[in-house]
Design a protein around this nucleic acid. Structure first.
Lengths: 215, 215
DNA sequence: GAGAACTTGCACATCCATGTGCAAATATAC
DNA sequence: GTATATTTGCACATGGATGTGCAAGTTCTC
């Protein structure tokens, strides 16, 4: 505590570094369970005293911000890895969903946090590029006839995003027992294509192809 | 305050009755803006002092509960009015969405409240009949071939519900300026049918028909 | 193994929301 | 018009969460 170097991104001692990671993980976990979880609960879940948390993150807001930054980076990584410039719109959209699935699952609690006062725009900013990219693909697909025009492209992007989020939230977790599960995101991707107006049978084929290309 | 009759459902003086209504309306409004809005903010928004709110609702929980009860009744009313036992599944589903649209718009803030500790199951209980009814229709439609089988019926119900909710939230409100609007819910109903696997063109026709039947 | 980084365990101050009590003022129903 | 339901404006108690200070451990790093 005397030398508050820990507040920066990189603590020097290894144990401190791992504590920082565990705090962030615990924050994801606890805030996912309850968006109003106290810092005490989070610290405790990380196997650390509350006072220690303040050594790493000066405030609750700073903690959440660090979480958001983490999610931002992962999402960006996943996207650039999945980007296929020349692909047909349905294939591109399927790839996008598949790529987002894992990281989205990891950080889904941020969505409920986003409804809060603090960080609303911040979180919106994180999702914005994703939605923009989806909207662009959807727009392209509406023009070449592969998607339906029952909704304007930006609204359609909203709808598909919500489907992904809803299916994410229905996934089994430590708290919620499993009714069904979709580890690869294939079902989610199919559902998104269908929502965009692709016939279910065709959608399934696109997703299968994207799955093969992906890994 | 001496005679706490106001805590019951029906205050005796007319002014008190209208205050109760205004408190509930303000609660909808303020909690929609911020799920953590304090009772003070709500009372103030209703043009009343905090102490008065306690005359009508003994606790924050009681207030939210009253709100939930209100929503429950309206939703139930809308549903029974829209129920068409013999209808084809797509027509039935379209009717369901159309019927839910208005009341859903009115009480959409309850959704974010539902993510909270208090009232989670309560709100889930309110939505449950709606989702169950949708799931039944979806199941029926999957069996007669009018819907896709890309997702199991209960999961599909989840997906369609999320689409409705997302489109609801994208509607213009006092806080959010309009990008598009769907006053009748026709676009939402169409989107739901498409999500269920109906081709966009066919979906539009079903919704038009349902709209005509509805009113 | 010595010094620094980090953790711990208190204690403490602060802020904010909730819920209650009471006396005085107001408005309504009859 | 008068009894009374209701509102108001305090004041106060409580509880919980946040954030800080400090002294004494631990443990990593070099």
């Amino acid at each position: 505590m005397t030398t508050e170097r820990a507040a920066a991104g990189q603590p020097r001692r290894s144990h401190a570094r791992s504590n920082r990671v565990r705090l962030l993980a615990a924050a994801r976990e606890e805030l996912g369970r309850d968006p109003d979880a106290s810092l005490d609960e989070i610290a405790r879940a990380a196997g650390v005293v509350r006072r220690t948390l303040y050594g790493h993150f000066p405030s609750r807001e700073a903690l959440i911000d660090a979480l958001a930054t983490e999610a931002e980076e992962r999402l960006e990584d996943a996207f650039t890895a999945a980007r296929r410039p020349g692909a047909e719109p349905p294939a591109a959209l399927a790839g996008l969903v598949l790529a987002s699935w894992e990281v989205g699952d990891h950080y889904r609690m941020l969505i409920s946090l986003a409804r809060r006062r603090l960080g609303e725009e911040r979180l919106r900013a994180i999702l914005a590029p994703a939605r923009a990219e989806a909207a662009a693909i959807l727009d392209r697909g509406q023009q070449d006839g592969s998607f339906g025009t029952h909704l304007p492209a930006p609204v359609l992007a909203l709808a598909t995003e919500s489907v992904v989020l809803a299916l994410l939230e229905s996934q089994p977790s430590p708290q919620r027992s499993a009714q069904w599960s979709d580890p690869t995101g294939a079902a989610a991707a199919t559902a998104v294509l269908v929502t965009a107006g692709v016939a279910p049978a065709a959608a399934r084929i696109y997703v299968q192809a994207a799955l093969r290309t992906g890994r």
